[in-house]
């Protein structure tokens, strides 16, 4: 597969050999919704928010290779409805209480829900019982908000070389676990400065002491939508 161009909602976007639709879109400044994708890490393809219609088929833009002449549909009403449903599923699966979440306003899950006009969760809440791990002096692991994107897993394993996190369990019982016999974050070798602390798209990994540095109402996604700003973790950018 050589270099070429694809179109995204009619706009011509060039790609280089080996690029995914998402990578080509990012390079061209075209926003495709996503949560588990991060340009620095290997494609994962689990959240499915980036599902687009390419050549008439539904594919995850973050894993589907670009190929010359491919026509990609990104912001259609049908895809928006599908993405809204995925967001609603993520909201009811966990315990997402935006009003008192440190990440509110900077949260990518919330920002995408704003972007797709989600006003209600649509499906019955699961209200799962999940453990909060506050054992670590520098970090709180708030599993109620975890969406299993595995960005921290990849960052810790592939960048930090530590493998502090991984997904255990199956199906709806899948959960984020940490690498210690006690199951406590304090007993892992997680340390300040780890890349794994700076990639969480939601409020599941919270570095202590900076939660409310910027007041609610003045945060990243409070006034401008994520498709204009991109997926960012502003606390780590300061």
């Amino acid at each position: 597969m050589a270099d070429g161009t694809i179109t995204i909602d009619g706009q011509t976007v060039p790609f280089t050999e080996g690029q995914t639709i998402m990578q080509a879109a990012e390079a061209a400044g075209v926003y495709i919704a996503h949560l588990c994708h991060h340009p620095e890490f290997r494609p994962h393809g689990s959240c499915k928010l980036c599902t687009v219609k390419a050549g008439g088929r539904h594919v995850a833009a973050c894993t589907a290779p670009a190929s010359d002449g491919l026509e990609v549909e990104n912001e259609s009403e049908e895809l928006a409805a599908g993405r809204r449903a995925l967001l609603q599923l993520l909201f009811v699966e966990g315990n997402h209480y935006c009003p008192f979440c440190e990440r509110s306003g900077n949260c990518q899950l919330q920002a995408l829900a704003y972007r797709y006009g989600m006003v209600e969760p649509h499906f019955p809440h699961f209200y799962p019982q999940r453990e909060v791990d506050a054992s670590h002096p520098d970090v709180v692991l708030e599993r109620n908000r975890c969406i299993l994107c595995a960005l921290c897993v990849r960052a810790s394993r592939d960048v930090d070389g530590k493998h502090v996190f991984d997904i255990v369990g199956r199906g709806i019982h899948a959960r984020l676990a940490v690498n210690s016999a006690s199951g406590r974050l304090a007993d892992t070798d997680l340390a300040p400065g780890d890349r794994a602390l700076e990639v969480c798209p939601v409020g599941a990994i919270i570095v202590r002491g900076r939660g409310f540095a910027v007041p609610i109402g003045e945060r990243l996604y409070d006034h401008r939508p994520i498709n204009e700003i991109g997926n960012r973790v502003p606390e780590s950018e300061q």
Binding site: F91, N95, H96, Y97, C98, P99, V119, H125, Y127
Partner: peptide, 18 residues
């Protein structure tokens, strides 16, 4: 009309669900 976080998600009172 469902007005506010508690009406729509259970909100703060739903913290007792755990």
């Amino acid at each position: 009309i469902a007005c506010g976080a508690c009406a729509i998600t259970g909100g703060i009172p739903a913290l007792r669900n755990g």
